[in-house]
């Protein structure tokens, strides 16, 4: 067994207590489900002096449902999101992405908010949240603010959260029923982080795309909305969508952010991603269900 990481553990009972601990300890990390942070500490890739665990913190386990939005608190697990009937009906894109996180064992503990704040490029949920125009509620013991998830991620494993801040919840506007959706994920084997993933919401009237939201993640410094392509797709006939997306001109938009590696070099990514996103867009248009073979 590996060497135990060394830190002080705090288990606050309230959000206020947690925020005070974060303020008092600049070198601290919040622990939600722990499915990323614990292995990172085991591997020696994270070594905070203080770990603030939310396992017995009050007021962080709720899913709040309103007519036009759903608010998911810090300790809500991806498994719960995957299986929640209301989310499955109203925000199926989120449920589909949540169902692709790791294994059931991981999803039983991994949280949506923790997943976003961990900022792993291979996250399933960041592209989904970005596609859904989700906002993050942030608190510190000096106040609160709200920011789009799109502005949360600075780069791999880095966020724009400031010292002492805690992400309290994600607020997701419920897309109306006219949006079609698709989440697609590419892995070398089951259960892996995404080698590439795409979250797509699209509105079609007659045979024309009237609005599209496209988010791509995986081999990128940060998951992004492909805004230029979204604009290009607006008011185009559905039948042209695959060619436009797979044409790949839009890849220039992301070129600076591409992260190639030994198994998926940049020249592979620039060929693969347009085809991958085109297939995702097509499946969304065809209203394919969220399952993949």
């Amino acid at each position: 067994m590996s060497a135990s990481p060394s830190f002080e553990l705090e288990r606050p009972r309230s959000v206020e207590e947690a925020l005070d601990l974060l303020a008092a300890h600049p070198d601290s990390r919040l622990l939600a489900g722990g499915q990323s942070l614990v292995p990172l500490m085991t591997m020696g890739l994270a070594a905070p002096a203080v770990v603030v665990s939310l396992d017995r913190c009050a007021g962080v386990t709720g899913i709040e449902t309103e007519s036009d939005r759903v608010t998911i608190s810090a300790m809500v697990t991806t498994r719960r999101i995957e299986l929640d009937p209301d989310i499955g009906i109203r925000i199926p894109l989120l449920a589909a992405a949540a169902a692709r996180v790791g294994s059931p064992h991981v999803r039983n503990f991994a949280t949506l908010v923790g997943n976003l704040c961990h900022a792993d490029p291979g996250s399933d949920l960041i592209p989904a949240a970005v596609c859904l125009d989700a906002d993050l509620e942030v608190r510190s013991n000096r106040g609160r603010r709200q920011m789009p998830v799109d502005e949360l991620i600075d780069g791999p494993f880095t966020t724009s959260l400031r010292p002492g801040e805690m992400a309290m919840a994600v607020r997701i506007p419920v897309p109306d029923r006219s949006w079609r959706y698709r989440y697609r994920k590419l892995v070398k084997r089951a259960g892996d982080l995404a080698l590439a993933c795409a979250a797509v919401l699209i509105r079609v009237e007659d045979v024309t795309i009237v609005e599209a939201r496209l988010a791509v993640g995986g081999p990128l410094r940060r998951a992004v909305r492909v805004r230029g392509l979204e604009t290009e797709l607006r008011d185009t006939p559905v039948i042209d969508a695959v060619d436009i997306v797979s044409g790949g001109g839009w890849i220039e938009e992301l070129a600076d952010g591409l992260l190639g590696d030994h198994t998926a070099p940049v020249d592979y990514l620039t060929v693969m991603l347009p085809r991958f996103l085109a297939a995702t867009v097509h499946e969304a248009v065809m209203q394919a269900d969220g399952t993949e073979p």
Binding site: V242, S246, R275, A278, A279, H282, E283, M286, A288
Partner: peptide, 10 residues
């Protein structure tokens, strides 16, 4: 090629 499925344009 299998039957070209509508789900799969590529």
């Amino acid at each position: 090629r299998p039957d070209r499925r509508p789900i799969d344009p590529i």
